[in-house]
Amino acid sequence: MKKQIYTIAENRLIAADTYKLVLAGEGQVDGEFVHIDIPGYYLRRPFSVCDTDANGLTLLYKTVGEGTRKLAALPEGTELSVLTGLGRGFDEHACRKKALLVGGGLGAAPLYPLAKRLKAQGKDVTVVLGFNREEEIVLEREFKALCNTVSLSTLDGSAGIKGFVTDAIKALQPEYDCFYTCGPMVMMKAVCQLLKGPGEASLEERMGCGAGFCYGCSIRTAGGPRRVCKDGPVFKKEDILW
């Protein structure tokens, strides 16, 4: 874990209520998520890392509460205190040859760096993304440029297959030896019930410290209590008590 100052290089609406935040600073950051001090709020807010390069990192976020609305209003050039190197992410080595990635809404964001790692290892990657409606779609172009197959579903049928990600999976019948999912709990539960074989899911919980020492985000798992921020946020599907 490191605490560093990053500068907002871009903070732009890219889909309905969804912003892309590019932070300039130390690049090639480790970890599954970062914890950002938003001016005016007491606790930091956790955000999944969507991408990282030599110049810094990219996050996607939705304006769901006061903190994220405040973040959306911050102009380019604003300096932010960021904790990096947090969380245990998806294990790309759990996949032998063919991976299936299933994202719901902004759950697509942490799947993108996973897709990059899997492709770098020469593995086949199939991606199924689900959104409520066309206006909420993110990362479609990025995944299509990177992955073998990308399938879309929307609840209202405004883009791709009409229905849930599970409908898109049934229509696609993808080959895979390991699956990875991130999105709303009900979606991940349905995905884990539908899909056979090894799988991992990324959970979300209100956090205090974000670094494993306050025990504010401990959940019960098949292996006993686990901290979402430190032992997760990614857990094996059989460990999660839905």
């Binding site: 709020y41 606790l43 919980e205 209100r206 025990y215 504010g216 985000c217 401990s218 959940i219 209590p225």
Partner: peptide
């Protein structure tokens, strides 16, 4: 301990 959420702003 208690169920989550355990933390509030």
């Amino acid at each position: 301990g208690n169920p989550v959420p355990r933390i509030a702003e």
